[in-house]
């Protein structure tokens, strides 16, 4: 594959992905932070809808033998410590890296501080890499839920899919998504009790 094809296809996928992130409002810091405070459920609704879609197609492709899956190895300490850092960082920053790029595209200039922090974090990580490298090496290799539980892969896929679908239905009944948008569609509600007045 030539570098030109890689660049062009990455750009095309990126434009489509960024467009959808913006339209879904899931990139809004107001939506991300409020999701972590369990006050807004747009992020979970978009995320679960995407998983169920991918689950159906990928499980079918796998059953038909068209794709082979390569689950990542379990990194006990890496997954746990890394996950905690991601969760904390995402909440402080107001999004994961893809959302931060969408924020910059949509005009949030303050998101550049997150990029700066990320680059500094990358530099710090690379500096400490030799110290950190032995940490996750104790993992048991790639494990899947199907492998761990002895349940066939498609049966578990259906169970996960149905479970997530039920979650989304229940959340929507509890709180329709339009209520979570806010007047400016940025997840901010100016009329909630105790909220500051609009500036």
């Amino acid at each position: 594959m030539t570098i030109l094809i890689a660049l062009l296809s990455g750009l095309v996928f990126g434009v489509a992905f960024g467009f959808l992130l913006e339209k879904s409002r899931v990139f809004e810091p107001g939506v991300v932070v409020a999701q972590m405070q369990l006050r807004n459920f747009i992020l979970i609704k978009v995320w679960f809808s995407a998983i169920v879609t991918i689950l159906i197609v990928v499980t079918l492709l796998r059953e038909l033998g068209i794709v082979t899956l390569h689950p990542k190895p379990v990194l006990l300490i890496g997954d746990l410590v890394g996950g905690l850092l991601i969760g904390t960082g995402m909440t402080l920053a107001g999004g994961c890296p893809a959302m931060i790029m969408a924020q910059i595209g949509a005009g949030y200039r303050d998101a550049w501080f997150v990029v700066l922090g990320g680059l500094a974090g990358l530099a710090a990580y690379l500096t400490l890499e030799l110290l950190l490298r032995p940490l996750p090496a104790d993992g048991p290799g790639p494990l899947t839920l199907a492998g761990l539980s002895g349940t066939p892969f498609p049966a578990l896929a259906v169970a996960v899919g149905v479970g997530l679908f039920a979650c989304v239905i229940a959340l929507e009944r509890l709180r329709p998504w339009r209520l979570d948008l806010g007047a400016q569609a940025d997840g901010i509600h100016h009329d909630r009790p105790g909220s500051p007045r609009r500036p």
Partner: peptide, 16 residues
């Protein structure tokens, strides 16, 4: 924001 980015990127590298 800086702190968030600083934690998030090494976290993603650690967790793959």
């Amino acid at each position: 924001g800086f702190a968030g980015g600083f934690l998030m990127v090494p976290g993603a590298l650690l967790a793959g």
